[in-house]
Design a binder for these strands. Structure first.
Lengths: 226, 226
DNA sequence: ATGGATGTAAACGTCATGTAAAAACGGTTC
DNA sequence: GAACCGTTTTTACATGACGTTTACATCCAT
C-alpha cells in the first residue's frame, strides 16, 4: 500500500474535472485542478505533484506550454488528455515529454488504468525531507536547512534551487533547468539571478561536507565529499 | 547523444515486425524480435533489454503472460501493442504492469513517439564514468578527474582530449583526429594548442599508473602500465 | 651536428562567474 | 494609499577560467 499521490488536472472542461476527480478519489489519491494556464502556473510554482494531467485547449493557452515548467527539477511527470487526437498532436505531446497521451473521449476505466500505470511507473518517493550525506538536511515544506549543527530558514527561491541541486547530486544542472525550476522561465544570456542565489546558498552551506561546484560553461552541481 | 537502447519485439505479425524494426532503426536503437512466446522466453532468459514490446495474440500464448518474466528483477519495461482494444483489455494490460498500451492499427509516427517517450522516461541514467586501470577515473559530465587519491576539475578541452585518448587506449591518436575531437577544426602545421593541453594533462596524471606517451611525428597515446 | 618536432612556462584576449550593493517587487499593516 | 518588510532581480565591478599564442629550451631522427 503506497501513500496517496497528489494529482493535478489542468482542464476547463467540467465533465473532465468530474470524471478525473472521481477516478482519483476512487484510487485513493489527492485531487486538485485548475481551469486555465495562468492559475495552473501559480499552483505549480507553489506545490509539488506526483502527476499532472494536461488538456491542450485551455481558454488562455495550449496546455503543452506548461510542460517545461512541470518537468523542471523533475518535479512531476505529466500526461496529456485531449480531444486533439491526430497523429501529429500525439507526436508533439509525447515529444514534449508527456509519458502518455490519452484522447478524449475516454472510458473512465481506461483512464483510471492509465493513471494507475503512470503512478506505478513514475512515482518518486514522497519526500518532504531531503538529505545529502550526513551533515545536510532540508525540510522542503518548512524550508528549514540543517547543516553543520545550526538550522536556518531559506527563502523560497533558495529552497527551490537547493532541491533542484539535491535531486541531481552528482550530475550537473545547467542554467536552463535551474531557471525553469526556480523562476519558471527560460534562462536568457546575461541573467545573473541564479549566480546570486548560488552565492547565497554557498554561504549557507559553509561547514558542510556538501559543496556546490561550478561546471564552467554549463552550470552547477552539488557534490558531497565526506 | 544517448547510447542506443536494446528493444525487443514479440509479435508474429510480419507487418508489425517490419514497422517496429524500421522505427527502431530510425531512432538509432538495436532491434530484435521473436514470433512466439516460447522463443521469446528463451531470448529473455539470455539477454537484457531496455524495452520490450508485446503483442497479445501470439500463436502459442497471450503475450501478457510474459510480463512477470520481463519485470522480474527489474530487467526491463514493456508496452503492449495489440489489436485487442477494448477497455477491458487495456485495463488488464496496464494492470499487469505495462507502461503503455497501444492499439493496432497505429500510425508509425505515433508508435515511434510513444517508444521514444517510454525510453526517455524509463531508461537508466546515462553512464558518464570512464576509467582506465584502477587509479584513473573520469566523470565526463562533471569533468571531474579522480586520480591517485585527489580529485580535480578539468577544463572542457582537457576533458575532451582525455576522453579522446581513453577511447583509444593503446593506440596512438594523431593530431588531426585530436584536433577535430577537441576544437572541431582541422589541425594546421604550427598549431601548438594540443601540445599545451597534453602538457597540462600530463601534470594532472602524475601519480597515476596511466601515462601519455609521445609517438614522435604522429601524435599521442595513453597507456596504462601496471 | 643539425633541423625539425616536442615540452612547457608565461602572457593574452575573451568570456564566465563571484559577490556586494542598489533597485524593484509583492505582500501586510496601519 | 503610504510606509514597511522580506525577497527577488538588476547593476556594477572584481576575479577567475579558458583556449590560444609566443618564446625558448629540449628532444629526436638522420
Amino acid at each position: 500500500m503506497t501513500a496517496p499521490a497528489k494529482i493535478f488536472l489542468v482542464d476547463d472542461d467540467v465533465l473532465a474535472q468530474i470524471m478525473v476527480g472521481d477516478i482519483v478519489d476512487q484510487l485513493g489519491h489527492h485531487f486538485s485542478f485548475a481551469s486555465d494556464g495562468a492559475s495552473a502556473r501559480k499552483v505549480l510554482e507553489e506545490k509539488a505533484f506526483d502527476l499532472v494531467i494536461l488538456d491542450r485547449r485551455l481558454p488562455d493557452t495550449d496546455g503543452l506550454l506548461l510542460a517545461p515548467m512541470i518537468q523542471a527539477e523533475k518535479k512531476a511527470s505529466f500526461i496529456v488528455l485531449s480531444s486533439l487526437d491526430s497523429p501529429n498532436d500525439q507526436v508533439l505531446g509525447l515529444g514534449m515529454g508527456a509519458i502518455d497521451y490519452v484522447c478524449k473521449p475516454v472510458e473512465p476505466v481506461v483512464l483510471s488504468a492509465r493513471i494507475k500505470a503512470c503512478l506505478a511507473a513514475h512515482r518518486k518517493p514522497e519526500e518532504t525531507l531531503l538529505s545529502v550525506g550526513a551533515s545536510l538536511q532540508l525540510d522542503t515544506s518548512l524550508r528549514r536547512l540543517s547543516v553543520a549543527g545550526r538550522t536556518e530558514t531559506l527563502s523560497p527561491a533558495e529552497t527551490r534551487l537547493l532541491v533542484c541541486l539535491i535531486r541531481g547530486v552528482g550530475q550537473p544542472c545547467d542554467r536552463m533547468r535551474i531557471s525553469m525550476a526556480i523562476c519558471g522561465r527560460e534562462w536568457v544570456y546575461g541573467d545573473r539571478t541564479i549566480d546570486v542565489l548560488i552565492s547565497r546558498l554557498r554561504r549557507r552551506l559553509r561547514g558542510s561536507s556538501a559543496r556546490i561546484i561550478t561546471v564552467h560553461g554549463l552550470g552547477y552541481s552539488l557534490i558531497d565529499e565526506e
